[in-house]
Amino acid sequence: MMPGDIIGHEFVGEIVETGREVKTLKKGDRVVVSSMISCGQCRYCKHQEWSLCDNSNPKGALQEPLFGFSTSGIYGYSHLFGGYAGAQAEYVRIPYADYGAIKIPEGLTDEQALPISDAFPTGLMGADLCNIKRGDIVAVWGCGPVGQFTIRSAYMLGAERVIAIDRVPERLKMAREQSGADTINYEEVGAGEALKEMTGGRGPDACIDAVGLEAHGMGFMGAYDEVKQAVKLSIDRPYVIRQMILACRKGGTLSIMGVYAGFLDKMPMGAAFSKGLTLKMGQMFGQKYIPMLLDRAVKGEIDPSYVFTHQMPLDQAKQAYETFKHKKDNCIKVVLKP
């Protein structure tokens, strides 16, 4: 990140201007925009692997030493991901708008459509990667907005039961009341042990990480610099991955939606190996999941607005960040209104 970069990657709005090649959108259309910027034409986009786009990251070369290959751009998410201006602003430019901006059907409010730009498709992909089968029990670490939608999605995809893990009481409460999850407060009991007992000693069939590395001062550029200095320090705090590897049942799946950027230390690979786990992960394929979520929302099957606990004017964004970061005032998700 650089001082002055505009942040924000979850947004809805109205088209005010289009480039001359944009075919599917016109001025005045209300749209929800995927946080992933994808060209729609490369091999990955054509395979619906939108966040792996070959063409949308103008600074892809920065990623290559770290990841081997470059992935898609993301709005307002550091120069490693393209250095695109973000959307916590009054206006934003949408590249490849035909693919990135999806029209909001009649009858949905901004609050209903907004989570469908990022948090909900992330949750849905997290659950989708688990290949849920009849009778499966899914454990979800993290009950932030992504976690909430992960829980909901796991049920949508047929999970027998979802067990949600966090330590913030109102987030656990939302998981129980809005989505019918069983919950574990990991400050009260060992999550691994509780999961074992709650699953008949088998362990959850799939474990989903909706926590990630927790924005902790160290950004993506930190990781990049580090790699240039050769392997020295680990930056991520992979508590959740460690716990998931140990807690998951044999032959189960880990789905990792929480973001990781650098290197993991103390990874219990022996456990993952002995139990024959499958690990799946990645930035979400927004354009793949957004249309189906809008469809469900229009039909009234889901109302994603329930995660919003706070609405603030854009001017108060600084305060909003503080409230969200420290989960003050029972904050789960904030919508900013320009």
């Binding site: 089968k133 009849r134 009778g135 499966d136 027998e160 039961r161 008949g200 000693g201």
Partner: peptide, 11 residues
């Protein structure tokens, strides 16, 4: 009963 075809949970 455990879910689906997984047998019986004995606690």
């Amino acid at each position: 009963p455990a879910p689906s075809d997984r047998g019986t949970e004995v606690k």
